[in-house]
Design a protein around this nucleic acid. Sequence first.
DNA 1: ATCATTATTTGACACAAGTGAAAAAACATG
DNA 2: CATGTTTTTTCACTTGTGTCAAATAATGAT
Lengths: 199, 199
Amino acid sequence: MIKLFSYIEQYLKLSESEKKSIAENCCFIELKKGDYFLQLNEHCNKIGFVNKGILRAFHYDQDGNDITKSFIQTQQFATNLKSFRDNTLSDSLIVAEIDTEVIVMTKENIANLSLQIPNWSEAVSYIIESKLLEKMKHRTRMVNQDATVRYLDFLTTHKNLVNQVPLRHIASYLGITQSSLSRIRKSVLKNNFLPNDKI
Amino acid sequence: MIKLFSYIEQYLKLSESEKKSIAENCCFIELKKGDYFLQLNEHCNKIGFVNKGILRAFHYDQDGNDITKSFIQTQQFATNLKSFRDNTLSDSLIVAEIDTEVIVMTKENIANLSLQIPNWSEAVSYIIESKLLEKMKHRTRMVNQDATVRYLDFLTTHKNLVNQVPLRHIASYLGITQSSLSRIRKSVLKNNFLPNDKI
DNA sequence: ATCATTATTTGACACAAGTGAAAAAACATG
DNA sequence: CATGTTTTTTCACTTGTGTCAAATAATGAT
């Protein structure tokens, strides 16, 4: 819970009573590796804050391939924002990559808090937009870089992830095949992290 | 102005007096081809709504290459959201690709309106988030598709754009070189829009 | 119209990445 | 630890894309 408070306080100073309100408006769940936080075609009416562990958001493409959209690490949020906002069915799934602790707030929780904490809604919007902008910037970068640079980028933006999740998920996240990622890893190792003078 | 009203009314019903308030809180500008709507390192304190024409948002990468981030067509918004929200310097530029009419609202205008129109701020947030989600989805798709599919995608999502902007800008938007785009266009034409059984 | 400029296509070649299958390594379970 | 399963690497081969330069085509200004 401490982590959640300090996260929110980056954007909105909280009094003790406000923290209490927040604590009363969320619940703590533990997911085992492979458990789903969000299923396909579920109405996503919740936001999860990863306290510990790793979640992975993905969807199935037209050929049924599992395509990773994001990895959600400690102190990051998990939800399908489109489904959450518009009450539509989720087109993506969120699964625990390892045993994971999640603090969950429902839409109702969040609405309750907006009555109890001044500027709560504004802060929530601000956080959501910030996260989206960040992801956006990252994705835009990915379109214009080759696979090796994308992988090196990934290593720095997703510290300690590379040995905790299957490489095929990283490959789909990077938009390359697993064999290709394997070759890139080899070349990165051999060339002492500076393949082809990149980066 | 009519277009702006009908756009906003997708999200928030407006009374006549509210429309009047909006009209009083924006200004209409005409940009000639090549004119900038937003310069590098400017504080972006405005949002533009394209009434007619085409704007293009881009940035310079580490090697000084002009990389197109988006094309902004009729009834779409132009701004650098990060700079707008956080009062930081813009790392991107927005230029008119052809002669373009833009309805401009400053941050101050928007703040004024929030005092005059109930739910104005919420609607603005909602619109911004929707746009971000849309762009995000699109970008994520781009990472996992090959260049030909991305180009065909582009043709459908950016109707009538292909013969109004230089191909090199489309190429950088798609994350490929101009020669590569040229070859793709050739093959798409030859194969009657169905290259390699794709799509 | 003509010329200069800019945009687009093409060519030759090298390198990057995909494919499908098989081998090797790592991991889990009895 | 032994076995079966999953994950990762490797192989041979094909296709896609980048690079750089040159050839065409389109555009704009005088």
